[in-house]
């Protein structure tokens, strides 16, 4: 008898869920809202003078855990400021092995590389997922840019942030530099 009762209770629960609004969506037609920090693909930016912001320093290529970024450094005169500076002659980002860990964005000294806020990145060929330099600059113009860049991420992780409001605990003071942490 108890089995029947529990079975009825289960049926009641499923019936209860049947009258709730569905939580799934018809995916290609309806897209879920993305939070501000949502990030997928990459773009390279221009700086305020209109020049390419990337200096080709290769910090992103070195920090990348799966080594999907290759940067070729070139030095030439800027077309706008007429100053000689570093440029990325070639910049390739292979999304097939990208972890989306955001470390390249964080380490960029000139806020040149940012992430995009596009829903997804399907492709029919592998080459669709390899971002060459023209595609990265194209992304800047054509796609919505993500929230984070190096300055914002660094500000968020500033060891002195919030220190103005002292805590009762002594641990809130900036910790002494770790042994060997200086580089």
């Amino acid at each position: 008898m108890g089995y029947l009762l529990d079975g009825l209770k289960s049926m009641w629960t499923t019936a209860l869920n049947a009258i709730r609004p569905p939580f799934t969506q018809e995916f290609p037609k309806v897209l879920r809202p993305h939070p501000e920090r949502y990030h997928t693909s990459f773009a390279l930016l221009h700086d305020e003078t209109g020049d390419e912001a990337c200096t080709g320093c290769g910090a992103c290529a070195r920090i990348c855990p799966s080594q999907v970024i290759t940067v070729k450094l070139g030095k030439r005169e800027s077309a706008i400021t007429q100053k000689k500076r570093g440029y990325a002659d070639d910049f390739t980002l292979d999304l097939t092995a990208c972890l989306v860990c955001e470390l390249c964005v964080q380490v960029c000294p000139t806020d040149a590389i940012v992430m995009l806020k596009v829903p997804e990145l399907p492709g029919f060929r592998r080459e669709d997922l390899v971002l060459s330099m023209p595609r990265l600059y194209e992304n800047e113009k054509s796609k919505p840019l993500g929230w984070s860049n190096a300055t914002k991420l660094m500000a968020m992780q500033d060891p002195k942030a919030g220190a103005a409001k002292p805590e009762p605990s002594k641990e809130t003071a900036p910790a002494p530099a770790a042994a060997g942490a200086a580089s």
């Binding site: 499923t14 019936a15 869920n17 049947a18 709730r20 609004p21 569905p22 939580f23 799934t24 018809e26």
Partner: peptide
């Protein structure tokens, strides 16, 4: 369709 609704899903729609 019924299973979809009971699981708070849409069920077949296309």
């Amino acid at each position: 369709k019924l299973a979809g609704r009971m699981q708070s899903r849409l069920g077949p729609t296309i």
